[in-house]
Amino acid sequence: MSEPNLLRRNRKRNGRAAIRFFRILLKHQGCPPRVLIADKFASYRVAHRQMMSSVEHRRNKYSSNRCENSHQPTRQRERAMTWSHSVGAAQRFLAVFSRISRHCSPPRRGRTTTDHRTEMVAGFQAWDQVTEPTIAA
């Protein structure tokens, strides 16, 4: 098989994969979006043209940063479990870590410093009560 035919076939396959991806998204969404923000993949342009030609397609360099930053809590949890060697161990760790992390670092947005400190103290007091060793009588 010659090199150009292989590249052409891969291009079509990527376009088909993007069409299948958009079809799944539209089925779960229920209605077409007002604006499509995607990376500069050529296969997205093919799928956009076939599936949602009436929808505006924005392909700016930094448009997808907002979408990627929304996954930041997930990335923090993934970073915390990088030491894990198995899926089960990671799941056990994350089950506990996600509950504890909210006590140790409450969100700061829209709060005064006093409210933040009060919540931090309450969270650490709750943590001390849970982890306090009981003395057998």
Rank of each mutant, 00 (worst) to 15 (best):
R11V: 00
R16L: 11
R23L: 12
L7P: 00
C31N: 13
I19N: 04
R9G: 04
K27I: 07
R20N: 15
N5H: 13
P33M: 01
L36N: 03
H28W: 11
N14E: 10
P32G: 02
A17Y: 05
R20S: 15
A18Q: 04
I24F: 08
L6G: 05
H28F: 14
G15E: 07
R16T: 09
L25Y: 07
N10Q: 13
F21W: 09
G15M: 01
I19A: 01
F21E: 03
L25N: 08
R11W: 03
R8M: 06
Q29I: 05
K27P: 00
L7M: 09
R8G: 03
P33Q: 02
V35C: 04
F21K: 02
L6S: 10
P32T: 02
R11A: 10
L26D: 01
R8V: 06
E3F: 15
P32M: 02
G30W: 02
E3S: 14
I24M: 10
I19R: 05
I19C: 09
N14M: 08
H28C: 11
R11C: 08
K12C: 08
L36C: 06
R9W: 04
L6C: 12
A18L: 06
H28T: 12
R13Q: 15
L26K: 01
F21A: 11
R8H: 10
P4H: 04
K27Y: 11
N5E: 14
A18H: 00
L7T: 07
N5C: 14
P32N: 04
F21S: 05
I19T: 08
L36T: 03
L25K: 04
K27M: 08
N14L: 08
N14H: 09
P32K: 08
N10K: 10
